[in-house]
Amino acid sequence: MKALLAALAVALAGPAFLWKATDGFQALTAEDARRVAAMRDRPMVPDIRLRAMSGEVIGLPSADRKVTMVEFIYTTCPTICQSAGTDLARVRDGLVEKGLGDEVRILSISFDPETDGPHQLSAYGESHGADGRIWTITRPDVDALPRLLRAFGVVVIPDRFGGYQHNAALHVVDPQGRLSAILDTDDITGALGAAKRASQ
């Protein structure tokens, strides 16, 4: 009897604990976890200066109360960052189409500012059609980088071939500077919906 009760207690407590540890079995990986957390907690992103490819200095929470879509890249990336660039061009076109061009801006932020000088940023922008109006390519100060990545939950690790592997995603920051959604870069419809929601 005692054994049965104890087993029952563990059999109930165990799944409850796992439920809690996985946000209701929604997030088994760290990547899903940060996406769930962003939706739920809407954490503030740090106040950071970025240098855009035009040379101009811009703030991360937007000064003119725009929604900001953020992705992290390094311009010498041969794979993911290139296809993400194509995705972002489509997001940008979608924003224009939906008439959200004035309320939303897109920032590609390099997490490799030592390699990615103004020159590299412009080249990357040019090759993906980022003209600096809605979408621009930027880089942070080297010392601000860790704080920035940590706040967004982005992890960058060397890939043994001189490049990096990193969790690529589109991060939506609302006008108040809160991280309110994280999506796959190719989820264009999802991104446009999230932008619309954040702008209201």
Partner: peptide, 14 residues
């Protein structure tokens, strides 16, 4: 059972 749940937790990539 306790061990099983413990193992399950540490098998989560998260």
């Amino acid at each position: 059972l306790i061990a099983l749940f413990g193992i399950t937790f540490w098998m989560l990539p998260r």
